[in-house]
């Protein structure tokens, strides 16, 4: 029996995602395409329960939260926040697995679940600080992002489509896929340029996926405008202003 929950010392490549929080519009297209691809791809289908009823609940590998970020002074900012498995270098979900169903691949760093070995104890989901693993409500095995391992190496697909479903579908191009171990890759350059960061670095998981921060706001608004009507109907000057005043009196 191979002992596979030991993490590889290093991985040759670090395949992962770079997610641009400045660009994401929160349309959930990546969420839907992820579900669509993964319900028919690697492993058991991604099930839902009561899908058309009052209390639908199901397994998703990618979810988008929306946050309000309010500075001490000035206006709140809305940030859409896609979240999926970060394929951590020091993945705590892998080492806690009692069966060897969870493993991290030495060749590309992808964290996967061998579903036929999974006993559905749920401990890996407890070990993940990001909420990246969800139990399938029907198959009772742990589901997680595979980085679309069945797309990115799939020679039946045209080369242009060999990227994760979430990346392929993003209409705003807020998601990027590449090798974060290669400093010359587009994703690595993007991270260096924009100050890409780890989620919850204090958890010591060393996530591969990186997030790019929202760019600083360029508008002059520090406070909400006092008169919203004046914004919608700016006062007209000159001939139009004269006409406006005359018509007002008629």
């Amino acid at each position: 029996m191979d002992l596979v929950t030991a993490l590889p010392e290093t991985t040759a490549r670090k395949l992962g995602l770079v997610i641009d929080l400045d660009i994401c519009v929160g349309c959930h297209a990546c969420v839907v395409n992820c579900k669509e691809w993964n319900t028919s791809g690697y492993g058991a289908p991604l099930a839902d329960e009561d899908a058309y009823g009052d209390q639908p609940v199901g397994a998703w590998l990618n979810r988008i939260h929306t946050y309000e970020v309010k500075p001490d002074k000035g206006l709140a900012q809305i940030v859409h926040f896609p979240k999926s498995c970060l394929h951590c270098e020091d993945a705590p979900c892998v080492t806690v697995c009692p069966t060897g169903a969870s493993f991290k691949r030495a060749e590309d760093g992808i964290v996967l679940v061998e579903e036929d070995w999974c006993i559905g104890c749920g401990l890996c989901a407890w070990a993940c600080p990001y909420g990246a693993r969800e139990m399938d409500p029907v198959e009772q095995v742990m589901k997680k992002c595979t980085l679309c391992v069945d797309r990115i190496y799939n020679e039946n697909l045209p080369e242009v489509d060999r990227e994760p479903a979430c990346v392929a579908t993003c209409p705003a191009r807020a998601r990027h896929f590449g090798d974060l171990a290669d400093p010359e890759s587009d994703v690595s350059k993007m991270v260096a340029e924009r100050g890409g960061f780890d989620l919850m670095p204090e958890q010591g998981t060393k996530p591969v996926n990186q997030y790019l921060p929202p760019r600083p706001k360029t508008t002059g608004f520090d406070e909400p405008p006092a008169d919203l009507v004046s914004l919608a109907e700016p006062a007209a000057g000159g001939f139009l202003g004269w006409l406006d005043r005359v018509l007002e009196k008629v």
Partner: peptide, 25 residues
């Protein structure tokens, strides 16, 4: 703040959850 990495911009709170219903997590 550390979960989203947005703490430097202000106080972070969830405005919209990912789905209207509940989930496993």
């Amino acid at each position: 703040a550390s979960a989203t990495g947005l703490g430097h911009l202000g106080r972070v709170r969830m405005l919209e959850s990912p789905h209207t219903g509940t989930n496993y997590l």
